[in-house]
Design a protein around this nucleic acid. Sequence first.
RNA 1: GGGGGAGUGGCGGAAUCGGUAGACGCAUCGGCCUUAAAAGCCGAAGUCCGCAAGGACGUCCGGGUUCGAGUCCCGGCUCCCCUACCA
Length: 859
Amino acid sequence: MSQVYDPREIEKRWQAKWHEDRTFRTPNPGDSDFDPDRPKYYVLDMFPYPSGAGLHVGHPIGYIGSDVVARRARMQGHNVLHPMGFDAFGLPAEQYAIETGVHPGEFTRANIDTYRRQLQMLGLSYDWDRELATCDPEYYRWTQWIFTRLFDRGLAYQAEVPVWWCEALKTVLANEEVINGRSERGDHPCERRMLKQWMLRITAYADRLIDDLDHVDWPDSVKTMQREWIGRSEGAEVDFRLELEGAEPLTVFTTRPDTLHGATFMVLAPEHPMVAALATEDQRSAVQEYVRQAQVKSDLERTDLAKSKTGVFTGSYALNPLLDPSSPEARVPIWVADYVLMGYGTGAIMAVPGHDERDHEFATQYGISISQVVAPEGGEPDPEVCFTGSGVAVNSGELDGLSTEDAKARAIELLSELGTGRPKVTYRLRDWLFSRQRYWGEPFPVVHAEDGAVHRVSDDELPIQLPDVDDYAPAADGSAPLARATEWLKASTADGAPATRDTDTMPGWAGSCWYYLRFMDPHNATAPFDEEVQRYWGNVDLYVGGVEHAVLHLLYSRFWHKVLYDEGLVSTPEPFQKLFNQGMLTAFAYKDSTGRLIPTDQVDVSEEGGKSKETGEPLDQVISKMSKSLRNVVNPDEVIEEYGCDTFRLYEMFMGPLSDSKPWNPRDVPGCRRFLDRVWRLFVDEAGDSSVRGQLLEEDCEGEATEALERHLNRAIKRINDSFGPFNFNTGIASLMTFVNEATKAPEAFTRSQAQRFALALSPFAPHITEELWSRLGGEESVSKATWPEVDDRFLQDAEYELVVQIRGKLRGKVMVPKGADKGALEAAAREAVEELLAGQEVVKVVVVPERLVNFVVK
RNA sequence: GGGGGAGUGGCGGAAUCGGUAGACGCAUCGGCCUUAAAAGCCGAAGUCCGCAAGGACGUCCGGGUUCGAGUCCCGGCUCCCCUACCA
């Protein structure tokens, strides 16, 4: 039998054995083999949406990183929960179904199979017994169950909200599907329509979603993004009386009630319900035309800062509540402009052009008067400048002289006394639009009674399964595909009255809101998860995924988790204790002299750089995202086929810190394979016929060379350990390489114990080769169940070290000195080393840093 | 416009507290082995000047603090990611 390293054979064999032995099965509390004495560790990857294209080499980098963590945690004696599943409802499968008529479930299953195969090929130590897919009725049964809890708590409601409607496609489109007011697919015109939609009252949790960020170990950037997304701002609501007969006052929200005296006009969002009533006879047609145009503008167009602001005067006036109604300043014109958004605050503002950039721009453009009511601290108001900072109130009646902070408080007091204002906290965060008129999603577990009342179905009716339909596209009248399932629609209320089912489905985010909880107890048929099991696993200790989910998924998930916490179903207020974002894996792409991108398969790569295969023209190498259109996507199957999975894993971890974005360089991959070859040959004589070198089966030898290796090995294990904090496994791997380089120079000094510890330390990164070597060394059980090696501090220190000698901070010599030598001895040794250079110089100062250097400062 | 991150050899990157800049890997060059090549093993290598010993310069640019700065402070440039009229 050949003793040559053959990763293909080894990897296949061990993967089969892991599968057969269920090596990575994780027992739960209650299972016979569960060991309650071990601490728990839950390390989770953000599960993927299984697209038709399969994985490219960028996808698994986070999975490999978390697998390395999981494997070491197991070896350190933890009960490790490390599962994988699939986020399987969603638009791509649905679109494919509409185009082909194939059931989206069928398409999704096939994609899941591809993904599972690819993931298993990577040797990831998931407990596959816990695999789940969000489109499985046994899973979405509990997604619906959780929805009913939200419904019971009044957190789910239906409301008329503006949504994008495309007449040509007869469907509602998501914001990101609309570009410049036209559909992304087909380029058809779109408009906003008021439609009845399911909403989740996430705003009720806004403060807790902000405050509890203080208790999780997340990157500051992500915390900041979430805080800003929620966008809490404190201010006041102010009522402006209208001149219009019998009209209710117009309420605005402002964060600067102190500037009320400087409000020279008001602005309503085009969608504001009072717009029509406020448009006077001679302004009516202009207002109507403006509102119509705003309707078809996309969010992007409306918010494009490069554009100048637009608006139109309604013809009506309001009265400033803090001014004498008879004074001319009290009377402010009301405008309509699309820089005011209906979705924020009250959809109406008091405009203070003296102290707000946007209002200033608008006022300047339309010739509206500007007044200064805040002066900079210790300065005079400058009518030329829009001063948005804090200062002192001026021209503001009894607020005059107060600091901005005090003036705000005083203004709110005055308004409260008058009954025309009140303190108010507003959030940028809106309630969550939770329904889509689509097929491939969770049906809502509710029925509509004939009287219009909405009843949630009882728990024992769940799951409300998706019915089969023959056409997945929305109907011509815009109704959802589920409306076609006429039989399925027939239902009844709890007391037997006839009712119809809801034809909307939940959005793609729903299933991913709680999957980490289902992983704890994935086959539970009577509850989403067992309470005791949940209490044991607690929350996710380490959650690894891309920054693209920094806001939405993580916010929605935290919201659901908090609702479940309030229900008493989960024991922690937050779902993910530590969050880690892996960096993006980029790839080389090539540009010609005109800046056009050339697909990688049309480029000749040589030492001098890239050249076009077609024209021979030299090309510029740039680094960019992997994408189909650049044809610079690298497929992991091919890399594994050529070099083996251990090489692939090792390379991805060796490229650099896990959090950094870095380019895949095919030329670097063989270096990692060479390292594994060297490891193999250190253990196995490829020319011989024994399973490992003879000395590795014998008692440890001793000697100077062995002791030197021992120092390298301990240093390597220490650096590996250190690399788990910042996730820079590249440094740990580098020290393993150094060890192998040293051991290769003195192979006879390499002992059995060192071989074992080395295999253990390498095993999280290269699990297959180490599994093989471990068993060849006589290991009976999987290397993944062995104990992580200890570092012996005695071997981290050398008896001597190299002392650096500097003159005026410049390196001028080096000298070996014994460890622990006192400063005087160090200085003497250093002085001797640079004696000639110091001759005739006046030393004015000597800096002695033990363990480091001696610096002579000369004149 | 706002927020976050980064800038070190030909390339990916290393440098724990302010203390030898460039670990480890790739690419390159040389040697050994071989009839030869590949593989493997051993070694060289920041740039410039010099036969050499040696010297000067060097972590995006300009200042500063310090015996000493890739690291700390001030000012500027470039790139990447996120976000964007939120009153």
